[in-house]
Nucleic acid binder design. Sequence first.
DNA 1: TCTGGGGTCCTAGGACCC
DNA 2: TCTGGGGTCCTAGGACCC
Length: 434
Amino acid sequence: MYALVDGNNFYVSCERVFRPSLNGRPVVVLSNNDGCAIARSNEAKALGIKMGAPWFKIKHFEESDGLVALSANFALYGDMSDRMMSLAAGLGHRQEVYSIDESFIDLTGIPGDMTLRSQKIRYRILKWIGIACGIGIGPTKTLAKLANHIAKTAERKPGSYPDHHAQVCNLGSLETSELDGLMLATEVGEVWGVGRRICAQLKEAGIHTVLDLARLDPVMVKRRWSVVLERTVRELQGTDCMGLQHEPPAKQAIACTRSFGHAVLDLSALQEAVTEFASRAAQKLRLQNGHAGQVLTFIRTSPFRTQDLQYSRSTVVPLRRPTNDSRGINQAALMGLQAIYRPGYRYAKAGVMLLDLKPADLIQQELALDDDVTYPGGSRLMQVLDTVNTRFGRGTLSLASAGLAGEMRPWCMRQERRTPGYTTDWNGLAWARA
DNA sequence: TCTGGGGTCCTAGGACCC
DNA sequence: TCTGGGGTCCTAGGACCC
């Protein structure tokens, strides 16, 4: 049996902990660049604001309905997440942190009433952290996800779930007929693993509810769709196909990509941006003690500006030796940029991805057939770089090709509504009284 | 004027190997 | 006349997740 613990409207809930005046008001949290809504309070949802809605299209709700929009404050959400996860872990012996606001807990070997136990944990998280959660319980992760969805919608659709305890739904305690009833009442698109495309295909084939999907023959599903959807069907039927990932698996790729605050035309500005992205990616890589074997650089115009000439290209540059040195990685990234840059386009986004990752302590020995290409100072210098930037703030020390912060940088992102780092920065402490 | 970022897995096709 | 079988690696693209 699995439980899924999931923070409600997580980013908005984090903001509300430190600004209670936001309770009861429609609130959205905006993506980087204040581009679009990535979290919505229930009141914002009620206004019809969709996930991913561009800010400029919903801005009018500020005037008409008192909508509050905040720039994403990921330092805050990450810290709140850590606190929530450590309490949620108390539900069982093993936990898989699946995303910033969700974790699966393996309930195997836990005695007692799981519904009651979940309600207690839920209350503790609410009281100690200030975040409201939904908890779903089921024999597979897909069913736990479904239970979580039912738990969250139960309050909006009274009577849809027989247990009136809102926010906790235990499918394990239901009769088959009750489970069927819930599956029949839930749209197939709500299933974990069924996205927009597959949903449309399923409906085309006459499969509208979760129950319809759960009753399909997995072999047919594999033949007609894919092994991925087959697994989903089996999970809905109660066969555990995924298991719990207790230890987070080593990352296969590290990315740093950004949309620009304003369109960029010339190579030199792109070089600055790419240098910054390469440095940030390299720092993430060092943090997990890894080396990268390849560096991918991409640049692209905005697909939304249909009146503009479009251009999108990426290239992979292999590294002479796997490294996590910012200088080597940046050199490769700039080389890639040089190869794909074409003048005459309004670039809207660029990024650097580190691929072919391996542990830093795994070193491929080789014959010294040519001059050493490693940089002087090596890991010591990178250590100093990271220490200084952690202590005095991002970008205190940077590579020269990143340009100077004081100058006009059109590629810098806009973030006009960010709240302080309440829990991660001494200067950001909330004031009880000024 | 203004539309995010960071991941995973799977598949198909081509090149190449013995 | 009859032209295999089994495998790897790489890339691009698609689908999904939060």
